[in-house]
Amino acid sequence: MQVTEKKHAQEAHDDHGHGHELAHHFVSVEQQHDAGNLGMWMFLTTEVLFFGGLFAAYTIYRYKFEKVFEQASNILDPMLGAINTIVLIFSSVTMAFAVRSAQQGKSKAIVAWLGATIVFGALFLGIKYGEWKHDAHLHVFPTSDFNWTWAREKHAEGEHGHGHDSHGPELKGFVFNSPVVPANYIESDSRNPEAKQAKLFFFLYFSMTSLHALHMIIGFGVMAVIMVYAWYGYYTPHYYVPVESVGLYWHFVDLVWIFLFPLLYLLGAHLGAGH
């Protein structure tokens, strides 16, 4: 009896004639698509609040320590921030075309566009790595190694075109082997309450940008899986929710950066060089 029921269910399932395209608990491919899409937006809602907490912390400390936050932001290079913004927006365009290819049922094109998205995402992270290397040189990582006196002095030297370290610190394991800060700088920092405020800016800067970078790296993994499925023609114009969902995720990562760029990089841009 049980066996017969099972067999019957199997036949009913196959009657849809869509293979994997339509799961049997959905009425139509449209309903299935809208449900999947809604689920992804629900997830993105939690992501909005996840990053929202960090944006809230940033806002409070920024109003509390307005002057120092502007000076700390001035240490960052708005040119690199702007280039990275455009690189990331471009990766959103390639992602949009990946989803478009899925809607058109062009499997190999999905693979190509996702590949391009990963390449531009990696370019973004490469530029970020260069920035972090410079940050290590300036001693602005918010650890016990942080030194605001040193950072401002080295930054001013760099802006005036001399004293810039052409080699810079190299990555050794998980840390950069940046030069040791002389004792008189540490002494100067301990007497300066602004050093702690600047450290707070860099704590927020590294938390937000590294959480953002982590999202990108997770995105690379998801895209890689989807590329394999797409290569074997798993997605059709009736079933492409996974491609669309990774697209929504990637555009969300882009959205976060759109807000991070002015708040972190442009806050002190009006101060000009050497501040």
């Binding site: 708005p78 702007a82 913004t85 760029f261 002015p262 442009l266 806050l267 841009a269």
Partner: peptide, 9 residues
Amino acid sequence: TVVTWLTAR
């Protein structure tokens, strides 16, 4: 992106 950079300067 360019406009926001210019206005920030």
